[in-house]
């Protein structure tokens, strides 16, 4: 049996601020739209929307209907309704998620987004890249990288006061 070094989890609040700083020069407050992926990505998108002073209300997506593991695992319970409150056609969109891992969720999100229209440009913003990619997908904005074992999951949680924090789940 191996013992792991205790992992110092990143500060989610500090990463939200760092992510907004990294994006600021690359967004147009009047024209850039955010789409958060349920559930953590929606929280991060809300933070970025406020921090960057964007005019277009943020969208949200639940990619359950586009996941590539449906035939192995079935339809996920508690699928949420996707809401895209702006015209995707010709838009500059930033997909927002909390943690980037295999890239399969982002693949599903890209497919879903194109069913609303043809965006001019899509970027990807995440708080943490934890490695382990299985598809050729890279973030446009990412303030933190770390390496986790396959049995570990990094989950973003929101407290009753709205504060965001990471939690490490060992399987």
């Amino acid at each position: 049996m191996t013992t792991r070094m205790p992992l110092q989890l990143p500060d989610a609040e500090a990463l939200c601020a760092a992510l907004a700083d990294a994006m600021r020069a690359h967004v147009d407050p009047a024209a850039t739209a955010l789409v958060g992926i349920h559930t953590g990505g929606v929280w991060v998108a809300e933070r970025l929307h406020a921090a960057l002073g964007l005019k277009i209300p943020p969208g949200s997506m639940d990619v359950s209907f586009y996941r590539d593991d449906y035939h192995q695992r079935g339809l996920r319970a508690n699928a949420k309704t996707s809401q895209i409150p702006f015209d995707v056609e010709g838009a500059h969109i930033v997909i927002v998620d909390d943690v980037l891992y295999t890239g399969r969720t982002i693949r599903a999100a890209l497919n879903e987004l194109f069913d609303y229209g043809r965006p001019a440009r899509i970027d990807l913003a995440v708080l943490v890249d934890r490695g382990g990619r299985e598809l050729p997908i890279a973030p446009s904005f990412c303030p933190h990288t770390l390496s986790l074992a396959a049995a570990q999951t990094l989950e973003l949680e929101r407290a009753a006061d709205g504060g965001l924090a990471f939690r490490l789940v060992e399987k």
Binding site: F65, Y70, L75, T81, N111, D115, G117
Partner: peptide, 23 residues
């Protein structure tokens, strides 16, 4: 309840440009 809960996100699919999901 799960069937009713699952139907809600499907009703949004009809609002899209492409009214189809690949399941």
């Amino acid at each position: 309840t799960r069937i009713l809960d699952t139907a809600a996100p499907f009703s949004e699919v009809a609002e899209r440009e492409v009214k189809k999901v690949p399941l």
